[in-house]
Amino acid sequence: MADTATGATLPQPSRGGWRILALLAPAYGWLLLTVFLPLCAMLVFSFLKTTPFGSRQPLVFTFKNYLAFVDRPYLVNVAWTSLQLGLWTTGLCAALGLPAAIALARATRGRTRQVLFLLTILPFWTNGLVRVFSWTMLLREGGLLDQAVHLVWPGAGSLSLLYSFPAVVIGLVHAYLPYMILTCYLSVVGIEDGLIDAARSLGARTPAVFTTVILPLCLPGLVSGAILIFVPVIGAFMEPRILGGRIGVTMGTVIEDQFTSAYNWPLGAALSFTMLAAVLVIFAAFSGVLRKRLAVA
């Protein structure tokens, strides 16, 4: 009877190890099953000559899919479009999200802040498809946006934003802005009031306070927000397809086409892994700089 009591209180490393394992195993087991294994299957697919379903031909392995960018030069333009989408969306999210986060963290409190937060997160709770199609109502020729412009300036022509690059960016910014606001908010909330008082007492005016104190201390939030946004945006296919129309050909839509219409899974998989590699290379290139800047904050 005494054994059970002491057994619970005595430090037992092996038992602690088992406990940690027991807590981690379900989540990591699930990830292994649902992410890692299918990803491995896709990696194998990407080296196949044809999609391995519905044919009795023997499997033929090839590297040809990874030469897609050489074989099909138009893909380089598509990749460039995706990269531009990623940069514009991330940049605009930062430009809109950081001021919003600063205002939320420093000028609101209590109930006002709760309501404003709710409004920020609202896009997450709406179905993506509904969200994107509602943008078509706004942006199309003679849509709500055009009508609003004509109220102010009756002679103005149509903006006809729909099926253009800006339309895709607008849809993507709408979808991903909350990530930037939330990550920046966490950074801004961590800035002690005293730091701003100190900067001002040392002779800094508002612009200097922003560039020398607030912006550097928000960098971790901006970077994590940018990573959260940039990666899904360059692979996005729903917004480009619906809001971009003919010009909305991106890596995301090309890959989706391989899986759904062209039925060329190996090419789709190879393109996916090429993109993954490109993203990892970009992050690796920046990680040294980032780690140095983020270590302090």
């Binding site: 005293g194 730091l195 008082d197 100190a198 900067a199 104190v213 550097p216 201390l217 904050a297």
Partner: peptide, 12 residues
């Protein structure tokens, strides 16, 4: 010149 209770040194 002001010295704050929390020091308020710029961490970055």
């Amino acid at each position: 010149g002001m010295v704050f209770q929390s020091y308020a040194l710029f961490p970055h």
